[in-house]
């Protein structure tokens, strides 16, 4: 998906979040080639040139990916701008993006043949190579376990427990906590199955929707690599949104129990608590 050679642009680099995280990404080894802030182009942020538009940034530097840090009301326009400029991978970190905006962006990404990750996601980290997004730099170790998750801090928690146990990661992908996201568990599993650097997978799901059930179907029919899973929210009451816009059991669907059962039936090993994941690997 990405490596140390990937050229990355940051949309919203002049904002507090954009600036902080582009520094952290560079410290991790990511090749941040440019920033974009409409109305604020022409200068530099910590030595990174800032452009008025994605097109300008792309024509000067090329881009393999963009990371979107702009506030929710402008996230749709920013993501569409990157897609129209031909950026093949757009990671939307922004939280609170209107769901119809997310649908528009994701459907448009299919029209142009690009990939969207997020919204409301911590991004993608390939330890030792590059990081797109906001995951903490210090928790990773290179290895062959791929991690995919709908959440942020819970993922960091699990990744650091893997690292402490000497289990390194080939990639860590946060798909986001919103009800509609550009990259699903199934998309991630398909990539991991094909990835030579990955030998096993940790999947961290949560209540709401049917993404874990679809992942289970894929694991049963298409996966040869072992999967360990954990589903958060076993005790969450139905009908209540648990922090993430997508974490809600509605109309009897989306409980942790049904997800755990589907994964277990598909041959994944399902942990009862995050601390159990290391033991199951």
């Amino acid at each position: 998906m990405i490596d140390g050679r990937s050229r990355v642009i940051i949309q919203g680099i002049t904002g507090h979040q954009g600036r902080f995280h582009s520094q952290a990404m560079r410290a991790f080894g990511t090749r941040v080639v440019a920033g974009v802030t409409p109305g604020n182009g022409g200068g530099e942020v910590d030595g990174v040139p800032v452009y008025e538009s994605v097109r300008d940034a792309v024509s000067s530097h090329g881009a393999d990916a963009s990371v979107v840090f702009v506030p929710a009301p402008s996230a749709k326009d920013s993501a569409l701008e990157a897609l129209e400029a031909g950026v093949p991978l757009v990671v939307i970190v922004t939280e609170g993006m209107p769901v119809h905006d997310a649908m528009t962006v994701i459907q448009f990404s299919r029209v142009v043949g690009a990939r969207v990750v997020g919204p409301n996601c911590p991004g993608i980290t390939v330890p030792g190579r590059a990081k797109l997004g906001i995951m903490p730099n210090g928790i990773f170790r290179e290895g062959s376990t791929a991690v995919v998750s709908r959440s942020g801090t819970l993922t960091y928690e699990v990744v650091s427990s893997l690292t402490e146990a000497g289990i390194g990661q080939s990639i860590c992908l946060g798909i986001g906590g919103d009800p509609v996201v550009g990259t699903s568990f199934v998309d991630a599993l398909r990539m991991f199955e094909a990835d030579e650097r990955t030998s096993e997978i940790v999947l961290i799901g949560e209540i709401g929707g049917t993404a874990e059930e679809e992942a289970a179907e894929f694991i049963k029919n298409r996966m040869s690599k072992p999967v360990v899973a954990y589903i958060a929210g076993r005790t969450a009451p139905p009908g209540r949104k648990m922090g993430h816009a997508g974490a809600i059991i509605s109309q009897g669907r989306g409980s942790a129990k049904s997800k755990s059962k589907a994964l277990n039936d598909a041959g994944a090993r399902v942990a009862d608590r995050p601390s159990e994941i290391v033991r199951l690997l």
Binding site: S149, R150, S151, G152, T153, L154, T155, E157, G177, I204, E206, I207, Y230, A232, G233, R234, T235, A236, M242, G243, H244, A247, A256, D272, R273, P274
Partner: peptide
Amino acid sequence: ANGAGLTMATLDEVAS
């Protein structure tokens, strides 16, 4: 807790 997933996982641990 900080983060939705971590907060849910903490509730689960309390119940267990």
